[in-house]
Structures are given as C-alpha cells and as structure tokens.
C-alpha cells in the first residue's frame, strides 16, 4: 500500500496488507482491514488507537497467534527477519517466537504461571532457544532479573510475591532473555501506577538501546508514545489512518481522528481550555460503513467520504494520511497551530 522511503538500515519487520477477521456464528468482526508498515533495526513504532482499533489483533497476527477459529487471516504477508510468519508450521514458529520476536502483554498477573518460580519461567525461554544446560539457563535468568532491577536472589520466588510493576519486569526479562530483534509491548504499563509506569518505560528504553531491539509499542496513551517512539501509526477501525515520524504526527497532525484524539486530552499546561471530544461512538467492527469508517464522527466529512473508501495522501517522504478530504489540495484541519 505505502512505500517506505528506503533507508540503509536493516528491515526487521514487514507487514503487508494484513486483513484479519473473526468469523462468528452470526457476524463477522472485521478487526484488521489492510494494515501495512515496516520496522527497521533498533527503531520504535507506536501503534495508537482506541478499543477495537485492531492494535492487538495486528500484534497477534505478527506473532501468528491469532486464535483460529474464530480468527481468519484473509490476506497479507508478515516478514519477521526473513521468515514468512503466516506460512510457517507450529514447530518452526516456536523457534522464532522468543528468539527473533517477543511480546509482552498488558496484564502481568495472567501472563505468568502462578505455580512456577519466576527464575524457572525465564530459564524456560532460554533453554527453548539456546543450546545451554539447565544451570547455565538459570544463571542467565538470574542475570536477566538483575538487569530489570530485581535482586537475583528473588529468582526462586513465585509471581504472587512480587508487586505489579515487578511482575511486568519479570515479563520483560522473559521477553528479552534471548535477545530478540523485535519486542512487541502491548499496553505494558496500562495496569500500572504512574510512578511505576515511569520506571518500567525507562527500563524498556535502556534495554532497547543496549541490545538494539526494535520496538512495537501498542498503546492508547499519546504520552507514552511521545516518550517512547520514533514513528507513530494511528489506527482506527482496523486501518492505519495516519503514519509518520513522531514529529510528523504530533506537530503536523493531518488526520481528523488524530486531531480529535489530541483535543480529547486535558492539557496540563493550559487550564480552563475546554475538551473537544469526538462525537459519537467508536466504529462497530461488525458493521463498518461503506466509505471511511471515521466519517460518521468526522466534522469535515463530505458525501465523498461516506461513499468511497478513503484515499491515501503522502504529505512528506515519511508522512502519510488516509483521508479523502485531502483530495482537495486546499484542505486543512482546524486549529492545529494552537496546539504545537
């Protein structure tokens, strides 16, 4: 769909025209409807959007973890470090997951096994991927714990003995134990308090620099994106509606939905400014409209927007927006200048 400006750096992930539906008895949930993006070594991209935007489904598809049934990958290719993820057999996938690409989930309590000490859970991942003895793997686990700021002597403790922030760090230790090239973090700090969130994000940033890991940050929090990401892809109803560098999307916002997201946030530096929420409800993925999915909530929408799928416009070599309104060269969103 969109050509990334070619750079010299090594591409570690390439997602092309991904379409994922959940086919239920009475209805089809169109979760992801044509998503393409790529990621180069050591860079970070933020997938931003609200509930039902298709962020998590995109991530699961990259790992080839979409539950089937009811999930159906309708089309698309996913290339992780040269491996075609959607074509591999389960045995081959096991080798890649955890080794080339890892994922951390939102809820640190349910993603850890409650009856196995955390050290063993980290070591398990090491033993799966690397030809090492049990004791070497355990040593590595202790080392990883220290790296994420947990004293190594706590490796024998069980998940319930740790606080939420520490459990999330254990998950990060598991994910990074084999030094993967890509880390997918799905809302890693949403369940955490702000001061703990700051600790965890700083740590992810440090480790990312240290190992040169590429990062996909899935979040609904634009503040987290501003802190963590080089690039941003804003998702709505299963499509990327705007994509660019952090500066492109934050300082030169083009898509009306992205604008709406910013206007919905209280601004700490300006008290008394009214919030301008996006009217209406989030698009129902079982009943997507004919034209642009955002049109029913968009204050700039015209008949053209409602009738045909949105068109893609390239603003700069790095900045893309999917919005029919830009067919008119004179179109611009309101009041953006006041924000940046």
């Amino acid at each position: 769909m969109i050509d990334e400006s070619t750079t010299n750096s090594e591409v570690v992930l390439e997602v092309e025209d991904l379409v994922v539906h959940y086919e239920l008895k009475n209805e089809t949930v169109k979760a992801v409807n044509g998503v393409s993006f790529s990621l180069t070594k050591g860079r970070s991209i933020g997938l931003v959007g609200e509930t039902g935007a298709g962020k998590t489904t995109t991530a699961l598809a990259i790992m080839n973890l979409v539950p089937k049934p009811p999930g159906v990958i309708k089309s698309g290719t996913i290339d992780v470090c040269g491996y075609k993820m959607l074509e591999l057999k389960p045995k081959q996938l096991e080798k890649i997951r955890g080794k080339e690409i890892s994922m951390i989930f939102q809820d640190p309590m349910t993603s850890l096994n409650p009856v196995i000490p955390v050290g063993d859970q980290i070591a398990e991942s090491v033993r799966l991927h690397e030809n090492v003895s049990a004791s070497q793997a355990y040593d590595r686990a202790v080392e990883m714990l220290e790296l994420v700021g947990i004293p190594g002597e706590r490796a024998g403790e069980y998940p319930h003995q740790f606080s939420g922030g520490m459990r999330q760090r254990v998950l990060i230790a598991i994910a990074l134990a084999c030094n993967p090239r890509i880390l997918i973090a799905d809302e890693p700090t949403t369940a955490l308090d702000v001061t703990i969130q700051a600790q965890v994000l700083n740590m992810i940033n440090d480790l990312k620099k240290k190992f040169g890991t590429a990062l996909i940050m899935i979040t609904h929090d634009l503040g987290v994106v501003a802190k963590m990401c080089d690039d941003v892809a804003v998702m709505y109803a299963g499509r990327i509606v705007e994509k660019g560098t952090l500066e492109d999307v934050f300082n030169d916002t083009k898509h009306p939905y992205t604008e709406g997201l910013f206007n919905s946030l209280p601004d700490i530096s300006k008290k008394g400014t009214d919030l301008k929420p996006i009217p209406g409800q989030i698009a129902d993925p079982t009943r997507l409209p004919e034209g642009c999915a955002f049109a029913p909530r968009c204050r700039y929408a015209t008949d053209a927007c409602r009738e045909k799928p949105p068109t893609i416009h390239q603003i700069s070599p790095t900045h893309f927006v999917e919005c029919t309104a830009y067919d008119d060269p004179g179109f611009h969103i309101e009041g953006w200048q006041n924000h940046g």
Binding site: S163, Q199, N202, G223, V224, A226, K227, L246, F250, F262
Partner: peptide, 25 residues
C-alpha cells in the same frame, strides 16, 4: 513532585526524565 514528574505529556520532547522513586513501599 515525583507523581507530577511522572506525567507523560503528549508532546514531542515534552517528557524530561521523571523523578524515580526507589525502595519498598
């Protein structure tokens, strides 16, 4: 102070390093 410094602002370059709280609660 630590709490306020941990707020993430949705602005490019808006987030300085926050004050890190150490130790056990």
């Amino acid at each position: 102070k630590a709490l306020l410094s941990a707020i993430l602002v949705p602005k490019v370059g808006g987030n300085k390093d926050s004050i890190q709280l150490r130790g056990e609660v």
